[in-house]
């Protein structure tokens, strides 16, 4: 075919462009427009007013849920970091055989190939009253009858979401640590630093981009999660996404749901752009 370059470029670019416009731009625009509409039971009417946003800040249940969601997402990120960093560090600096290193790395990443629903559901079977944890505690005599305290609360949420999203913390940290040239640590030792000091001054600062990337991913993923809340969260573990889902479903208040969704989007975008800015600060330093 002998098409002018302009048309050829357009042909190549159009499928992704159409995709983005149709499934990202249009829905967000609809969401944005809806967030200013008013509810007129059983449907809603076009309008331009800030009532939905005012409602979000007036009724404490929304801010409370938002706060709880941020808390749970933050805890998930922190626990993921506390578990993932030592693990990635161990893999990169302590495991000498490449085969074993790969196997241990895959052990963390492989669960991503299993359906998310299945992985979250697993925790229900572990923490439930007839679950593995209760059976174990009863068989060892610690409990006399099954306890319901493990399931349907925020602890179960943090536990499940940490399990589900930890690969997204391990991967970037592993990548960042692996990129550190061994000679830097040798140079640090050569210049008189002990192991701990070398870690604080060299290894950790140079792995910070990975930490930030991992933190951003786990936080945003946990922040937007709503399935875990259905499975293991209960009313105590209700997330902001569950509230939004309710507005679009049972409550039939799309305008309020849209306003909530946009607030949530703003929070996530703020975090991502802050993380992006941090990464750009560190750019060029590995040249």
């Amino acid at each position: 075919m002998n098409l002018p370059p302009r048309i050829r470029k357009a042909l190549v670019l159009s499928p992704p462009l159409i995709w983005v416009v149709l499934f990202m731009f249009v829905p967000y625009t609809i969401l944005f427009v809806f967030s200013f509409w008013v509810q007129q039971y059983p449907t809603f009417a076009p309008a331009f007013q800030m009532g939905n946003y005012v409602e979000l800040f007036r009724d404490p249940q929304y801010l409370q849920t938002l706060g709880r969601t941020i808390k749970i997402a933050a805890l998930v990120s922190v626990f993921s970091l506390l578990l993932a960093y030592p693990y990635a560090y161990f893999l990169v600096f302590k495991v000498r055989r490449p085969g074993i290193r790969l196997a241990l790395y895959m052990a963390v990443v492989a669960p991503l190939w299993v359906s998310y629903l299945l992985r979250a559901y697993t925790w229900k079977t572990i923490l439930g009253t007839t679950g593995i944890l209760n059976s174990f505690l009863i068989s060892t005599g610690i409990l006399t009858e099954p306890s319901p305290v493990f399931l349907y609360n925020q602890v179960a949420m943090v536990l499940t979401l940490t399990y589900v999203f930890i690969p997204f913390m391990v991967m970037p940290i592993y990548a960042a640590l692996e990129k550190i040239p061994p000679s830097l640590l040798e140079a640090s030792a050569d210049l008189g630093m002990g192991r701990t000091a070398s870690f604080v001054r060299i290894t950790f600062p140079l792995s910070l981009t990975g930490v930030v990337a991992g933190f951003t991913m786990t936080f945003c993923l946990a922040f937007g999660d709503f399935i875990a809340a259905y499975l293991v969260g209960g009313p105590d573990g209700m997330m902001i996404s569950n509230v939004i889902a309710t507005q679009f479903g049972a409550s039939l208040n799309w305008p309020l749901g849209s306003a909530l969704a946009l607030v949530m989007l703003m929070i996530v975008l703020t975090i991502i752009s802050a993380s992006d800015r941090f990464e750009r600060l560190g750019q060029g330093k590995f040249a």
Partner: peptide, 17 residues
């Protein structure tokens, strides 16, 4: 870190940060 020798590394090993 306890030896009074220093090394000039082949890749210089400058701390990038």
């Amino acid at each position: 870190n306890r030896r009074a020798v220093n090394m000039l590394f082949q890749d210089y090993a400058l701390f990038p940060h």
